[in-house]
């Protein structure tokens, strides 16, 4: 299948997800299960990565400022904006591609190949809807929170790193207070919602249409991660173009 056929099939799957649930409570339950899985499952990883990214940004900027006339409090300002605009949403997105994307594709791929999806279908369940929709909704709801946490920890990590380089915390905090643009936070949240949708829907597509044997599950999962990562980065660019 060529990329255009894939895209068409992907859109058709998304179309099929929109239908009246057989039973709302079951969809809710599944939604909560997924929020738990996606949210709690990735919290530690994203937190650790965000702290280090904030720290690295701070250290590198401090290094570039050495012997320059730019005041040191600029570090706080730069770390804050870099983290909010780009690092927190995009790196969280990429990390989620690897973690959530592969696990969703594997879960659905396994269900497809072991005929669990057929079993649901026979019962009269709209599998496209029941298996895909709760995951997308859960991700769209929970990923912005993860991103906010990532941003906060990134900024915190930057502060720790600055203190470690011998710059006073007050200086860093002064930077944090300077030239704050609330719209950047909106941008961050828009990105996180778009990425959440992209990651889960692509992973669901890859898993849902897996076929063959156990080997194919691995392939579906790998390809979900690859395609979703590219889509995340590409959409990152387009969102920036559109909104900035």
């Amino acid at each position: 299948m060529n990329p255009i056929e894939h895209f068409g099939k992907y859109l058709m799957l998304l179309g099929r997800t929109i239908s009246r649930p057989e039973k709302f409570s079951m969809y809710w339950k599944e939604c909560f299960r997924q929020m738990n899985e996606i949210g709690l499952g990735s919290l530690v990883l994203i937190s650790v990565i965000a702290m280090f990214i904030g720290a690295v940004t701070a250290v590198q900027f401090a290094y570039q400022l050495q012997d320059s006339f730019i005041p040191q409090y600029y570090i706080g300002f730069i770390v804050r904006d870099t983290v909010i605009i780009e690092m927190a949403p995009t790196l969280s997105g990429l990390v989620l591609c690897g973690k959530v994307g592969s696990s969703i594709a594997t879960e659905l791929g396994t269900m497809r190949i072991s005929e669990q999806i057929d079993a649901l279908e026979i019962m009269g369940v709209n599998t496209a809807s029941y298996l895909v929709l709760p995951k997308i909704i859960a991700a769209i709801f929970i990923v912005p929170f993860l991103t906010i946490i990532a941003a906060a920890l990134g900024i915190g990590g930057g502060m720790l790193a600055t203190i470690a380089t011998g710059i006073a915390p007050d200086t860093y905090i002064r930077g944090l207070h300077s030239w704050f643009v609330p719209f950047n936070v909106t941008l961050m949240l828009v990105k996180s919602v778009v990425f959440a949708f992209i990651i889960t829907s692509i992973a669901c597509y890859k898993g849902y249409y897996a076929s063959g044997g156990a080997l194919e599950i691995g392939k579906a999962s790998t390809s979900a991660v690859v395609v979703a990562s590219i889509a995340v980065i590409a959409s990152d660019y387009f969102i920036a173009e559109l909104l900035l």
């Binding site: 269900m111 072991s114 669990q116 019962m123």
Partner: peptide, 27 residues
Amino acid sequence: IGMLFQGGALFDSMTVEENIMFPLNMF
């Protein structure tokens, strides 16, 4: 319709009881 699949096709994220209860919950 009820169907028994060649490989069982039980939902492996659910316990035995949840598996059997699933159609009741859904329908």
